[in-house]
């Protein structure tokens, strides 16, 4: 790995010097010896998922020999706008932005457009009325994640299940869409229903608190067949609450969640939770694909590219945990 990096670094520096001299989309003839220079403005590192997202993009860039200029915005939009302006001034070949909020991007994206630099939006959305301001958007399909979780659960329980739902933060897109996808599938099974639903704000301690109350409200948990949590953190909290109530999480009460953070693989390997749908952090590959296609002169790039994660279960949990643990 380090060897590869040493090999790529001079190459990347070379590319950096060249790109300022003649920077126009038509010049790059596919696999020329010149490395692409791409600026990436990331939200920050507020969660372990975000960290693995950054790592994945960096690794993908290194693999393709792309010179990635990484900028951490520390959850502030003004830092992201500054970073984008810097990228434009440096004359990078393309810019990838993982926006922290939806609004307020038009002026700075117009600057990038005037400079002829394509912009790819990843993860969260931007509210833009003019879709010529960006090349494409790469995002996870939250509704599909909800469907996948529900499909797994319906298969595991033969469609008969009393489910309690731990929602994410009220109003968050991820929470609304995951709920929608899950309900769609549940509606097709007449013996499956959501008996209780409440927000646990995407956190472990709230997940535990809400689950504690649910267990007491449903005859000590006897009435609950499964927990559906909108993220892994809440699922881990729920597992703690179930254990403290003297029941066996993953057995007496099934737990299915979304995200696939490292900790959930340990919980699954220990038999405490059952399944998780990966919120894929690997958005770097599709983003670089789109940029490379654009620079080769292709025009048929869709404005929204969705990526889907796989369902992981206890069967592969131990193996995956060993792989993901640093």
């Amino acid at each position: 790995m380090r060897f590869l990096f040493c090999l790529l670094l001079p190459l990347a520096l070379l590319g950096c010097g060249e790109s300022t001299e003649k920077k126009s989309a038509g010049d790059t003839n596919g696999d020329s010896n010149k490395a692409l220079v791409i600026g990436f403005s990331q939200v920050g590192s507020e969660s372990s998922w975000r960290t693995s997202f950054s790592e994945s993009v960096k690794a993908e860039a290194a693999r393709r020999g792309i010179d990635l200029k990484f900028s951490d915005a520390q959850q502030k939009q003004e830092n992201q706008i500054k970073a984008i302006r810097n990228f434009v001034a440096q004359g990078v070949d393309a810019i990838i932005v993982a926006p922290v909020v939806e609004t307020g991007w038009k002026p700075v994206l117009t600057e990038a457009k005037r400079a002829g630099i394509p912009v790819v939006i990843v993860d969260r959305n931007m509210a833009l009325d003019d879709d010529s301001l960006f090349l494409t958007r790469i995002a996870s399909d939250f509704v599909e994640e909800g469907r996948k979780a529900a499909n797994w659960l319906m298969e595991a329980t033969n469609g008969t299940c009393n489910i309690v739902e731990l929602q994410g933060t009220v109003g968050a897109t991820a929470a609304i869409d995951r709920m929608k996808g899950f309900k769609e599938v549940i509606a097709e099974h007449e013996n499956a229903r959501i008996i209780r639903t409440q927000t646990a704000e995407f956190t472990r301690s709230k997940g535990k608190e809400v689950m504690e109350a649910f267990i007491k409200a449903e005859q000590g948990g006897k009435n609950i067949c499964a927990v559906w949590a909108h993220n892994d953190e809440m699922a881990i909290g729920a597992a703690l609450a179930i254990k403290e109530a003297g029941l066996d999480p993953g057995d007496d009460i099934l737990i299915v969640s979304v995200d696939a953070v490292t900790d959930i693989f340990k919980a699954m390997a220990d038999g405490d939770t059952n399944a998780t749908v990966e919120l894929s952090p690997h958005m770097g590959g599709p983003a670089f694909d789109a940029i490379e296609a654009h620079l080769q002169g292709k025009t048929d790039i869709p404005k929204l590219i969705t990526i889907n994660g796989d369902v992981f279960t206890q069967a592969t949990a131990a193996e995956e945990y060993a792989k993901r643990k640093k």
Binding site: V170, R196, T197, Q198, A213, A217
Partner: peptide, 15 residues
């Protein structure tokens, strides 16, 4: 109050 809200099954948006 928090525990009551969780137990009562009120929709989270009203919390």
């Amino acid at each position: 109050m928090s525990t009551t809200i969780i137990m009562s099954g009120i929709e989270p948006k009203y919390n």
